[in-house]
């Protein structure tokens, strides 16, 4: 990573953060997923205790040691440690797709891509700079949502039941390993399809087709994995990291300027 690439990364990130519409579309879904939905859940369990009895079945999924005395607390713990982490697989992928899709096509549409290609950087370097810009921003969105979610959730739990729920160790693996790795894979793939697309719509559609199956698969698999053990997460994270590294290395090899313009 040299200073020329850093300049491109900085420019790309600034281009997004300076665009209010883009920022809002980046932040709305994560906030809905991680703040709005959990709040509804917590308030429901608090205000309608009769309904809670039905939810009690859910708790049987939990390992023995995780079973709390208080049903509400147990449900909140289930929410925090087994349900919400799933969103943090989806959020960075979505965030990065919004940006990655705009990275090459956006420049193509504004006729700035050709100028960028005249720089004394190889296509691979430009590609990586764009991938990293999208990746960094998606991590920012992801960590921001995490912080807001934790603050809001803990406040709500404290206010409703007076207790405090502890985030599990799996959060560490999710936020630092699995989520970044999946995000990197998504960004690399999307930037690659975006490089070929002729318009923003093309690129975003391509991104959706690419992501939906992955997301479904992930969501299905991870609920299970998370219940098994946090250690399995560590393994999955490592595998994802390897895939991301390979993709990043291989991805741009076949591209020529001619294909991009």
């Amino acid at each position: 990573m040299n200073k020329e690439m850093l300049a491109i990364i900085k420019k790309d990130i600034r281009g997004i953060t300076a665009n209010r519409r883009m920022m809002i579309s980046l932040l709305v879904v994560p906030i809905v997923l991680t703040v709005f939905l959990p709040t509804v859940f917590i308030l429901t369990t608090y205000l309608m205790p009769t309904e809670v009895a039905e939810l009690q079945k859910l708790l049987t999924f939990l390992p023995e040691n995780q079973q709390a005395q208080n049903i509400n607390d147990a449900l909140a713990g289930l929410l925090l440690n087994y349900f919400l982490p799933l969103f943090f697989l989806i959020i960075p992928v979505m965030a990065s797709s919004v940006m990655a899709a705009s990275s090459f096509v956006g420049e193509k549409e504004k006729h700035t891509l050709e100028t960028l290609l005249y720089a004394p950087l190889s296509l691979r370097q430009i590609f990586r700079a764009k991938v990293f810009a999208a990746f960094l921003l998606s991590m920012f969105v992801s960590f921001l949502s995490f912080s807001i979610m934790l603050i809001v959730l803990e406040t709500e739990v404290t206010l409703t039941s007076g207790s405090f729920i502890l985030p599990g160790i799996q959060w560490l693996f999710i936020m630092l390993l699995v989520s970044p790795a999946i995000s990197l894979i998504a960004v690399t793939l999307i930037v690659r399809t975006s490089a070929r697309a002729q318009s923003m719509e093309d690129a975003q559609q391509g991104a959706v087709f690419l992501l939906l199956p992955i997301l479904m698969l992930l969501a299905g698999q991870f609920t299970g994995v998370m219940l098994i053990s946090p250690l399995a997460l560590l393994g999955i994270g490592a595998v994802c990291c390897c895939i991301a590294a390979v993709l990043l290395r291989q991805c741009m090899g076949r591209f020529t300027y001619e294909m991009l313009l």
């Binding site: 420019k11 300076a18 504004k110 006729h111 700035t112 100028t115």
Partner: peptide, 8 residues
Amino acid sequence: HAQMYDTL
């Protein structure tokens, strides 16, 4: 076709 950034 080698334009620059309108937002800068």
